[in-house]
Structure formats: C-alpha cells, structure tokens
Computed example of a mutant assay.
Amino acid sequence: MKLVQIAGLAATAVLLAACGSGQVGGSGGTPAENSKRLTLIPGVQAEPFYISMHCGAQAEAQKLGYTLDTSAPQKFDAALQTEKVNALGSNPPAALLIAPTDDTAMLAPIQQVASRGVKIVEVDTSLKDTSVAQSSISSDNTAGGQLAADTLAQLAGGQSGSVLVLDTIAGTSTTNARAAGFEEQLKKYPNLKSVGIQFTQNEPDQAASKVTAALASTPDLVGIFATNLNTGEGAATGLRNAGKVGQVQLVGFDASPSEVEGLRNGEYQALIAQDPAMIGQQGVQQAVAALEGKPVTRNLTAPLHSITKANMDANSQYFYKQSC
C-alpha cells in the first residue's frame, strides 16, 4: 500500500472516531436521548468497506431522526472488539449495529449488551447463534465466492493450472463463506484445481508471504482468490515482488480505493464488490423498526457485482469510500 493511502486511511480513522464524539448518548446521556441513539461497531477502523457502511448508516439515521456514533477496534480482532462492546455497559444505546469479528467469541459480550434491552442488528458478519440479533444484513457471501470462481474461470480462458485461496481468520463468517463458495464452484471447471485455503490473519504481509511461498511450490499457479481487502492487497504485493503481475490472475473481494487503483493498473484482474453503504442503510432501518415496534426482517441480502477493467467505469458507484 502506498504511503499516501496509509496516510489517507489514518486520517479517516480520526474521522470515524470523531463521528461519535459529538453525538447524544455519550457519557451522561439521558434515557430520552439514548432512546434515539444508535451505535455502530464495525470490524476494524479505517477500512473503506466499513467507512462506506458508516456513511450509509449515518445518512439513514439522520434521515429517520436518530443519532449514530461509531466505535471501531484498531484491528479485526475479537478481544479488541469486545472492549468496544463492553464499553457500552455504563451507557448503552437504544440499538447496536455490529459486525462480529468472530462468530462464536463475540456471542457473550453481545448477549450482555442485549440483556440490557439493547436491540442488536448484525451488519456484514454474524454470530452462529441466531437468537441474539433482531436482524442480520449481509452480502450473500457464498454466492460471492461462486461469482469469484466463475470470474476467475473466464479470465483463465481455458488455461489449466492451480488456484490459491487466501482467507482471513478462521471463524469470520463472511470470508469463510466466500472461500467455501469459491472452492465448491471451482469444481465445475476441470482445468482449474484448488491448492487449498490458507489463512492470513487479515494481515497483508502474511498474504504476501503466502503468495511468495505458493509461487515457489506451485509452478502452475494460474490464479488467486483473495477473500477481502487486506488479503487482496497482500496478494498483489506478493505478485508484484515476484514479477508475476498479470501472469497470475488475481480476483479480489471488495472495491477499496487501493484495489480499484490496482484493477486499473493491472495488478488485479477482477474485483467482487459489495454494497456496504446499503448494508449500513438497511441496518439502521431494521434497528429503527425494532425500536418502534414495526415489522423487522430477520435476514437481508445486499447485492454483489463482478467488476473488471473493461466494465469498471460503468460500475464506479460501487467503489468504496475513504470519507463520507
């Protein structure tokens, strides 16, 4: 990642923190004020996916007469996210929108908040236990993985070879589903065979190392599927360092500014873009419906889009933001 991008993301982290600092419902908020206060706890600070989600949620909350504050962990980590959830205990919001960073480890802290009467809406990721949240809004991640496999097969154009799948962390519901969907769909293409799923702990440098190792051990590597932004950026770095950009087809998931730039300059051959702003918007809608005693939809699915260099300009509305 270029230094200017890092600087931009750092600045956005400050922006996200500031989004919650002036909202009603901080320390000392009254019960009446808190009844109109929503809190969003995304998976991690400064990722364009979650920034775009925040923007969609913030706009919808304002439209519906609610305030929204955002508190994001510095890393995609259950322990760090648990700290953010636990911090709500002294002054809970009316509803919590959360992207659980682990589908099991985050159950207890979220249950603790829910026990205080807080409505829970899952955005992007979800818990295995379906009894806690009023609603879950996510992309169809299995279908996203399948779309990635179809896209990679088209890019390969009949070429035979091996394919590497880079996932984030075991227990992350969204990316695990993408990897599984990809693996299953790839079986439909006899010219392509998977060398398995490797986890990167959501760290770009680990993804780059996995790619370097795979290039050395798998001479017929023709494709890589990276299940999220960080794995994609790391994979692009690994290919760039090895001089294999464009020789190995890289399909990424998400459409961050750096990924879009990579698609335009040929480091990626395709991106599977989500619609995080819609996820945030629908998350607020479902939270407000739950608070106001209106019908709530238990599961909602946001659309996905396969974007290549050829069609990227026509699909620019799906590129993720770095600020609202």
Rank of each mutant, 00 (worst) to 15 (best):
D129N: 15
Q23P: 05
K2I: 10
G161R: 07
F253Y: 05
M1C: 07
G234D: 08
Q112A: 13
V245A: 00
I51G: 00
L80G: 07
S131E: 03
S27G: 05
A57G: 14
D77P: 00
T200H: 00
S21I: 05
T67C: 03
S126D: 04
A143C: 09
L155V: 13
Q62S: 06
S136F: 03
S160Y: 00
T104N: 12
P42Y: 05
K75N: 15
G25R: 02
A273T: 08
E292K: 00
E33Q: 11
C324V: 12
N315V: 01
S135A: 12
N191V: 08
T227K: 04
E203T: 06
S135D: 15
I6Q: 09
P204Q: 04
A170G: 00
L152E: 15
I120H: 01
E83C: 14
T125F: 09
D140Y: 13
I51M: 09
A302G: 12
Q322P: 05
A177F: 06
V163D: 11
G293D: 14
A290P: 06
L164Y: 15
G89Y: 15
V211K: 04
N265F: 05
A32H: 02
S173C: 12
P190Y: 10
L16Y: 06
G280P: 09
L96E: 03
P73K: 15
K294D: 01
A61H: 03
G234F: 01
T168I: 11
H54F: 13
V211E: 02
C19F: 00
N202W: 15
I6G: 09
N311M: 00
G252I: 01
P48C: 06
T231Y: 01
Q146C: 11
Q322I: 13
G22D: 11
L68I: 03
Y320V: 02
I197R: 08
Q154R: 02
G280A: 12
G252P: 07
E233C: 06
C19P: 04
I110K: 03
A148R: 13
Q146T: 10
R240D: 15
V296E: 11
Q282D: 15
A180T: 10
A273E: 14
G196E: 08
D129T: 15
T142F: 01
D167Q: 01
E83P: 11
V44A: 04
N176Y: 04
E183K: 11
A214W: 10
T174P: 01
A46M: 11
P276L: 06
A302F: 02
P92R: 13
F199I: 02
Q58E: 14
L186H: 07
D220K: 08
C55A: 14
A18Y: 01
Q282S: 13
L3K: 13
Q281E: 10
I51W: 00
R264F: 00
K321G: 10
K244R: 12
A46Y: 00
Y320T: 08
T227R: 08
A287G: 12
T212V: 12
A170P: 11
T297Q: 08
D205V: 04
L155I: 14
I169D: 10
T151E: 06
A17T: 03
Y66S: 13
G89A: 15
M106W: 03
V260Q: 04
A7T: 15
S162C: 04
